[in-house]
């Protein structure tokens, strides 16, 4: 086993270990952080394979984008700090079954693929400009259609985000007006029993 292989196994162990931690962690924020490490590990694997462009995109999209969004949404929940209850046995059982099924499925596919013997030379060498041209190519193996479809999807997601975020302020009412006027706020006067009925004019 040479140094390269050792690095490969180390990275793989890191990815798998953090992935398992991500699904078994009791705290939701920690799960997100373990997921982050797992995704960074995948990027490291790409670097190991010398496909730097994919690695950089992996970091930009997953680490800088997806995980940050996940963390943001965790911030907005109430129970981000508290421990989640342990899942019931039935759920653990079914998830184990699902893992087993997934593992055997992918194992079968991988085992069925005839791998070539590893070579010492770089397997492929793609300049970044070629990737760019392929991405916007309309000819055979051109990716312009999927590229545009994905951007439309992202646009729709952005519009959806804005709509959800806008809902908190109802149309036509400013926040200033929503604030309660003095004399009508939530501090009820506990010290004095209500002896007399006195109408306090609420001018605002």
């Amino acid at each position: 086993m040479d140094a390269s292989a050792i690095i490969f196994y180390l990275i793989s162990a890191f990815i798998l270990g953090t992935a398992i931690l991500a699904v078994t962690s009791q705290k939701i924020f920690r799960s997100a952080i373990w997921l982050l490490f797992s995704l960074v590990g995948v990027a490291a694997l790409y670097f190991w394979m010398q496909v730097e462009f994919v690695a950089a995109v992996q970091i930009i999209v997953y680490v800088g984008g997806v995980v940050v969004l996940i963390i943001f949404s965790i911030f907005l929940t109430h129970y981000s700090g508290s421990e989640m209850p342990k899942p019931p046995l039935k759920r653990i059982l079914f998830s184990l079954l699902a893992v087993l099924f997934g593992f055997s499925f992918s194992y079968r596919i991988i085992a069925g693929y005839g791998f070539n013997a590893a070579t010492t030379t770089k397997p492929f060498n793609v300049p970044v400009s070629a990737i760019g041209e392929q991405m916007l190519d309309t000819k055979k193996y051109g990716f312009v259609l999927p590229f545009e479809v994905v951007s439309m999807l992202l646009l729709a997601a952005m519009v959806g985000c804005i709509v959800i975020a806008m809902r908190s302020v109802p149309k036509g009412t400013s926040v200033q007006k929503q604030a309660a006027p003095i004399g009508a706020n939530d501090g009820t006067n506990k010290l004095i029993p209500e002896t007399k009925d006195l109408v306090i004019e609420d001018k605002s």
Binding site: I182, A184, N189, L191, I192, L198, I200
Partner: peptide, 10 residues
Amino acid sequence: VRFLHHPDLR
């Protein structure tokens, strides 16, 4: 002095 109907008498 207690002020009756004061909104927040603390």
